[in-house]
Amino acid sequence: MSTLSALFAISIFPGGLFLLSSGLLYEWGNRKLLALLQNRVGPRWFQPLADTIKLLAKEEVIPTGTNKFLFIGLPMVALAGGLTAALYVPLAGLAPSASFDGDLIMVFYLLSLLTLCMGLAGTNTVSRFSLIGATRTLTQVFSYEAPFLLALLGVAAAAGSWQISNITAYSGQHWLILTQPLGFLVALIGLMGKLEMPPFDAPEAHTEIVAGALTEYSGRGLAFFHLGKAIELVIGLTLIAAFFLGGLSNPLWFLIKTLALLFIMVVLQALLARLRIDQTVGLWWRYGVLLVLVQWLLMVLL
């Protein structure tokens, strides 16, 4: 019986099917809202799905000079990392299907796995655009990861636990956005950096370095990376909504809160222009870290 429920958790809810479809729908929401802000009609609701199926059905070529094993394996690891992380977060406002003390740290690492895999995938090919993209991706990881981690750990410290289910139980009673506004700000913008959305899209700047680390990818690999990003969007939104916006008590609140967060992110994307990679690093280490440290100081003092 428990095997059956585990299978259900992995393949239908909250892993697998539910996660993939919600990831695709949130990606559509992101693109559609962005289009509306730019005075466009925007993509149809099935657009991310059509893109994914098309990519899956496309021919796959392994470029010369790459390690075949890594070339095929990295996208799978990236997607698997995202799917595994979903088991530990309170998706749709329901209790996470697995949980242990300290799972917050593990979810962090699983979410970074996608970016690390993209960086590795870029360095694995001999294309110079991939290499530049990979360097930028990895540079960016080192700039936003620390502030992002500190911002979310602030919540963990307030709740006195490193377990996501305990933290959400605590944050369900307290709107932490009121007591930790700086942490919220840094976490939200950190998520944008994680997803390489504008203004943090220097790693895949289409107008400069073709498509960044994924230049040589096509077909299945590209589809997996795209899916991984879509999933990470949902998981990141869930985490931030659950931590800062008064918890996720039921699916309706989940929808309202994550969509509100998504809307803020879209407005920021539409407003801001791309930062150069050195500006990104400067922003995070000069202001991001400082903001979080001020937040921590306030927490200690008050």
Partner: peptide, 14 residues
């Protein structure tokens, strides 16, 4: 707005 037809300008031939 060709995105409504699903068209996207890609920079990589791949």
């Amino acid at each position: 707005d060709l995105e409504r037809l699903g068209v996207r300008l890609e920079a990589s031939p791949r």
